[in-house]
Every structure is written in structure tokens, then in C-alpha cells.
Design a protein around this nucleic acid. Structure first.
Lengths: 335, 335
DNA sequence: TTGTAAGCGTTATCAT
DNA sequence: ATGATAACGCTTACAA
């Protein structure tokens, strides 16, 4: 059986109330008693039962996470790894709310409450995909990753998608590209929209007209990247550079380009997004926008912790810088 | 505020005990009352508070997971995705025990107890790396992934590492390779040991002598794969085929081979392990052993569930089949 | 078939 | 400075 507060109290010759006070940092306890109690807590390896704690309304030190694993999340490891540091230093454990379902009966809020989660991180969803309104209205501290919700007690964190593509466009223009395509991820995805926006701004700043036919649809996967690139190549005036919404779709685009007998970067420059491991492994290595997923993971927890500890705090909105990593798939435009 | 059992009872005009009985599947409750209660439970979106439930000794429906994220786990997503299905169907949520620490004071057991985890999955550790003895002795149902613990209430699940490399050796011998190297992962890792064992058996069955100098050290990463391959290439009689312990180290090996001015598969055949996305993206695509991580994830939860529900159950030991995926980095040995 | 009430381990209020 | 004790939301004898 696990050690209980009662056992510790008995051993230390004090009441449970005193032990509890020591553990909860009350200053009204004698220094000597405190020392003794702490010693027993340590020796007896007393870990307070979190259920009992939650029940009396004390902090549960639990953060919930809602996740779609059905989608491909090539970097959830990195996010988790980033989260871990923050969770440790703030003292939380993380509960993956697997019972989440898409059925009408399901309630985010009820689920969180039943698990006594103090706050929740949401990752991998699109805005309209789920009924997040109930969650947002509930006042449960929430941090969305890659979804711009900023309302009540719900804020978000994401990469600087817009700035990233704007910079990428500038970079390509610097290489004398004028026919620049944008290979979109899922058009409904927040990240895709932001990146498209940055693309438009980039062109505008350089006085290059925006062409509808230079926008190709995809959904972040290699397969759609391939298909989309084929379409672009079939254009009467195909692009000399293409900005992709993911490294995977960039790989698909590269496949299509090779199949068409063209070469990269001589004929066409290709830029990815994410900087997953694949990017540096393929030949030529992929020029891409590196997302700092570790940072996003860490900060998501830190932001949530702040939200939990201060209910007057306005919803956070944090944009994490990306970095253009120039490798072998981009070069000066062919004359 | 969240709906409580008391609220439901009041609304349905019964006692809390009756509601509880309905929820816990007691048969001693009138069919009509049951229906009515269930209707209210649904309408009022009543989710029982799991802390209160755990406290009275009922099931917490919580499974813990200990993980090293410090190592690279390119497929934790897949494991999690496999787990998800099983968690859903069995009704568990998964708590990531982030407060885990390597300090002397830390106790796996206490941590699990304090969180009321009914069982725990352990992934990414080596046997001697942590003090698992306390956990194993505690009687907490435990499933280790990729670590052969089978004792008390702790069992394990892993790929058929040994058979996998034995089959790979056979395959290479079928291609007339006789000088076959083994590029090890971390030598202390369970998976590495098993794979080395399979390699030895494979050679033995074909009456090919085992050569110490054909074994190269690594740690699953691209960097050590590169270094190890360099060493092998510097041998007076270099191998014509090399079996790597991960796809990443295979990529490193390929780099070294190219740097030496040799080509794959013409001069040397290279086989990876894992079948991560990179394997099918590189050119030539990597011949590799595919691990079914989704299956491992799903089964780890199912096994744990069985262990939880039957305390007479002997510790499980489940070996998940792998599959040799033949692509472009393996060919008939050069004459 | 239903209800009453004790108890799970902890915190917090109120005495002492 | 310390200790009794009610309360948290639920399950489960036991009583009715």
C-alpha cells in the first residue's frame, strides 16, 4: 500500500493537518516541526494522492492534451519533448485525453472536468472541425497550437507562418525568380492560410502580380504534392520556383519534377516547410523553413501555466520565429 | 460547475446510490428507473469525477506512460496512434508521467500510486538505465516496449528482432553475399542484442564464420552510422553487405559509402531497420525491415488491460512480426 | 428495488 | 503553533 499522510503524521508524531500544512507551504508551522515532517516525508517516500487533492479543490497538477493522431504529425515527438521540460519544471503531469470522440454526445469540457485538468492544450485540429465553442466559453485555460483562437481564457501559439513565406518569396526574388508558385497544404488549415497570405504580401511588395493558376492545392502529403506539381508543370508558363507547405509535399513535388525530366535546382527551385529529418537526407538536400517545434511545445505549457495561475491574464498569442535553411534545392533562376 | 451525481439524482428523483448503481452496471435496479436515470445522465452530460472514483478504490481508467523523449523516437507518433484505438475501446485515458526524474529520490511506484494509474507502459529505456526493480516488485501491471522484462506482473512487447536479422542474413546470402557486416545500435539496447543474435544465427546456419571485425558500433544515429561504415570500409577485406540497426544509421552508412567513391547497391548492399518515411524517400530507396509500431502501440495497451483485469495472468510476452521491404539498396553481390 | 450513511485521502476552517 | 473535523464526489455495505 502507498504511504498516506496519516502514516507520515503518525510517524512524525504530529497531526495530519500539520503535515498537510508543511506540504502546502503554510508559514504557520514551527521550523523544527517542519524539518522533522519533511524528513519523514522523504524517508517514507510520501507522494500525496492526487485524486484526494483534486477532490478537495486543490490543484490537480494535471494538464490535458487533445490531439488528432489520425493525421500525420511528423513532429509530435519534438513538441512533446519541448513540453516535457516545462511540465517538469512546473510540476505537471500530462493527460492525453484519449476518450475524446467526434460524436455529438462528447463534451471537451466535461471530459476535462471529470479528469480535473487545470488546463488543456489542443493540437492538430482545424477551427471548424470540432465544436470548440463550448470549450472556449467554459473558461478552462486553453492553448491551441497552430490555430488562432484568442478569446476568453483560450490563446494560441504558432510559427510565424506569414512572415516565413513572405521572407521565402523575397529570397526567391533575390535569386531572380518571378514565376513563383505556392503549393498549399489543406486550404482550411490555419497554417496554410497564413502562409498563402505571406506569399501574397511577398509578391505584392515586389510588384509581381498574383496569379490564381500558380496556387496548387494539396494537403501536406507527398502524394498531393506530386499531383499538384504535375498540374503546375502542365501550365503554359510553368513556375521557376515553388514554395511548398510541408517537406513531404516538397518531396512529392520533386518527384513530379524529375518525372517530367527536369532537374532541381537548375530548372526549378523547390522550398519546403518544417525541416523534418528527410529534408537534410535527400539529395540535393531540401531548402526549407525550419519550425521550432521544441520551442512551441515548451512555450505552450508555459503559457498555459501562466493562464492557470492568473485568471485576469488576457489570452496569450505567441508567434515563434522560423528560419529559412538554405540547402540544395534552390538556386538562381535560369535565364 | 460540472454536473454531479447529486444533480442527476435530484433531477431523476432517485438517490445518488441508485444513479451510481446504474452507472456501474448493477443488475439490482429496476429497468424503468435505469432508463430514466440514463436519460438524465445523457441530457445533463454527466461525466463522473474520476478523482472521486479513484478515491473510493474504484477504477481510475488511467494508464500511465513513462517515456524518454531525450532519445530520438522517430516513431512515437505511430505507437501513440496505435495505442489510441485500444485506449478508446477500453475506456482509458493515458497519463504521461512527466514528473519522472532520474534522481535517487524518485520512485516510479509512488508516482503511479499518487496518480492512481491502474497500469503503466514503459518505453525507450534500457534495463540497467533505471531502477525498474521497485516497479517490477510493486505488482503494478506493467508492459515494457522493447525491453524483455517478464516477471511478476510485468511483461513486454517487441518486434521479432532476432528473426528479423536472421531472415535478412538469409536474404543477403541468397544474393550471394558472404561478407556481411552488422552495424550495431547501442550495444546495451535490448533490440541491438537481439538483432546481433539473429545475425550470428543466420551466419551459422549458412556456415559462414562470424568475424569480430565485421561488427561495427553505433547508437542508431546517422552520425555513428557514418563513422562505423568508414571503419568497415577501411578493412583489408571490406564487407559487400551491411545490416544496420536503424534507417538513420543506414543513411549514415550510405553517406560513407558514397564518400568512398563506391556505389549502392552495385558495390555494397545496405539494409536498414524501422522503415521510417526517409527509407522510401531517398534514392535509391532503402531496403529495410519494417517494424509495425502501430501494432506494438495497440497491443501494449491491450496486454496491459488484460493484466489489469486478471491478476492471475502470467506476464505477457508478445513478439510482433516485422517484414523485410526490398527496395533499391540491395542487389546481387558483385563477382 | 431503493435509500442511508460510512469511507476513500487530502485540505481548510475553526478551536485550542 | 497545532489539532479536530467537515467537506470534496463517489461507491458500496447495509438497512428498509
Amino acid at each position: 500500500m502507498a504511504t498516506k499522510i496519516r502514516d507520515v503524521a503518525k510517524a512524525a508524531g504530529v497531526s495530519v493537518a500539520t503535515v498537510s500544512k508543511v506540504l502546502n507551504g503554510y508559514t504557520t508551522v514551527n521550523e523544527n516541526t517542519k524539518e522533522r515532517v519533511l524528513q519523514f516525508v522523504k524517508d517514507m517516500q510520501f507522494y500525496p494522492n492526487s485524486a484526494a487533492r483534486s477532490l478537495v479543490g486543490r490543484r490537480s497538477m494535471t494538464i490535458g492534451i487533445f490531439l488528432t493522431t489520425s493525421l500525420a504529425h511528423p513532429f509530435f515527438n519534438q513538441i512533446l519533448s519541448g513540453m516535457e521540460q516545462a511540465l517538469k519544471s512546473k510540476g505537471y503531469d500530462l493527460i492525453y485525453l484519449a476518450q475524446f470522440s467526434r460524436s455529438k454526445d462528447y463534451s471537451f469540457v466535461r471530459h476535462c472536468q471529470s479528469r480535473n485538468a487545470e488546463g488543456v492544450v489542443v493540437f492538430g485540429f482545424q477551427r471548424e472541425e470540432m465544436n470548440f465553442d463550448e470549450l472556449i466559453r467554459s473558461g478552462i485555460p486553453t492553448v491551441f497550437i497552430d490555430l488562432d483562437v484568442k478569446q476568453g481564457r483560450a490563446g494560441y501559439i504558432s510559427s510565424d507562418n506569414e512572415a516565413a513565406t513572405e521572407r521565402t518569396v523575397q529570397y526567391l526574388i533575390g535569386l531572380h525568380h518571378h514565376k513563383i508558385s505556392f503549393l498549399s497544404g489543406d486550404k482550411e488549415a490555419y497554417a496554410s492560410k497564413q502562409r498563402l497570405q505571406g506569399y501574397r504580401i511577398g509578391l505584392e511588395r515586389a510588384n509581381i502580380p498574383y496569379r490564381e493558376d500558380y496556387i496548387a492545392d494539396g494537403d501536406f502529403t507527398r502524394e498531393t504534392g506530386y499531383l499538384a506539381m504535375k498540374t503546375l508543370l502542365a501550365l503554359p508558363e510553368p513556375p521557376t520556383a515553388v514554395i511548398c507547405c510541408s517537406d513531404l509535399s516538397a518531396v512529392g513535388a520533386l518527384d513530379a519534377i524529375h518525372d517530367a525530366g527536369l532537374s532541381v535546382p537548375e530548372d526549378i527551385s523547390v522550398i519546403g516547410f518544417d525541416d523534418i529529418e528527410i529534408a537534410s537526407v535527400i539529395r540535393p538536400a531540401l531548402t526549407t523553413v525550419r519550425q521550432n517545434m521544441t520551442m512551441i511545445g515548451r512555450r505552450s505549457i508555459e503559457l498555459l501555466d501562466e493562464l492557470i495561475n492568473d485568471d485576469a491574464l488576457p489570452p496569450p498569442e505567441e508567434i515563434v520565429p522560423t528560419e529559412l535553411v538554405i540547402r540544395g534545392t534552390s538556386a538562381i533562376a535560369k535565364r
